[in-house]
Design a protein around this nucleic acid. Structure first.
Lengths: 148, 148
DNA sequence: AATTTTAATGAGACTAAATCTCAATAAAAT
DNA sequence: ATTTTATTGAGATTTAGTCTCATTAAAATT
């Protein structure tokens, strides 16, 4: 319990510091959006976050959700994910447990995976091209074992 | 010259066979769209292909472009690319010279790269999860050397 | 603590990419 | 040549995402 509360405190601090660094204000809405993305391990879309927060009683608009998500993506606090259905998904970016995705084109199932060798190769490639790597998008599409 | 004509012939054969396999018809519009994507090495969007073909005198509609692109992506003849500006791009998928992308978030420049080690790791991961790998999407976002 | 300054928000209008409908057309089969 | 059936075109429609601007709430200042 104590540990959990500390964890929330720490991640809220991350948001506060990021906003401060960008000269932006630490508002109720931004806190709630960040907390929502942070405390779930699913791949959320903007509309879904909007309605979840409204259902919980928060007064919030669609524009605020989109504007906040932009800030979070640009500052690398969340990742953007395109599974090919015309709607962007977002998920908490835990820098210490990063993962990419396997997506089934038949049933839309998403399987997460980790591969340090790939991460290292990405860094190497960026270095070769004199790129300052900010984030990446890496999805493998195919047919999962259940759909084969 | 002879070589070039043969090359076109071969890729048109690829389209014909793919359509046949799917029980679809080999139409003028599908040929022109495929040829357009095939014969340029740029990252094209649907609207741009539509107007290029119309300018060239072909009678073709937006719906046909989108419908054909869907078929080509699903059959792995072209790759879909999301550079983050809300418009999907497409490019010819040369299976023997596959590449991924480095995208500058500041100037939108796209740099292509090839990495066999990454391709091998992707195959390995798919195999581990008992996935039949169809295609992938791999983009590295960051700041290019000119924008730093 | 009250006041001023300035950025953020909400509501809904707006934009634009992508999809859908259905009568007309063209490919393939007969 | 005729029939069958998928494809196309035109434009209406949908919907994710953006924009505007008056109102509100952070943060800075007094």
């Amino acid at each position: 319990m104590r540990l959990n509360l500390n964890k929330i405190k720490i991640t809220m601090q991350v948001l506060k510091e990021t906003l401060h660094k960008e000269g932006l204000r630490y508002t109720k809405q931004r806190q709630e959006i960040w907390n929502e993305l942070r405390s779930s391990d699913k791949h959320r879309d903007a509309e879904e976050i909007l309605f979840t927060l409204r259902k919980r009683g928060l007064k919030i608009s669609r524009a605020t959700v989109y504007r906040t998500i932009d800030v979070l993506v640009k500052n690398n606090l969340i990742d953007k994910l395109d599974i090919g259905d015309g709607r962007a998904r977002f998920e908490y970016n835990d820098k210490y447990l990063h993962h990419d995705h396997l997506i089934c084109t038949s049933c839309d199932k998403i399987i997460e995976f980790n591969n340090n060798e790939i991460e290292e190769l990405q860094n190497k490639i960026a270095k070769q091209h004199n790129f300052k790597l900010l984030y990446h998008s890496h999805q493998l599409f195919g047919i999962c074992k259940d759909c084969k």
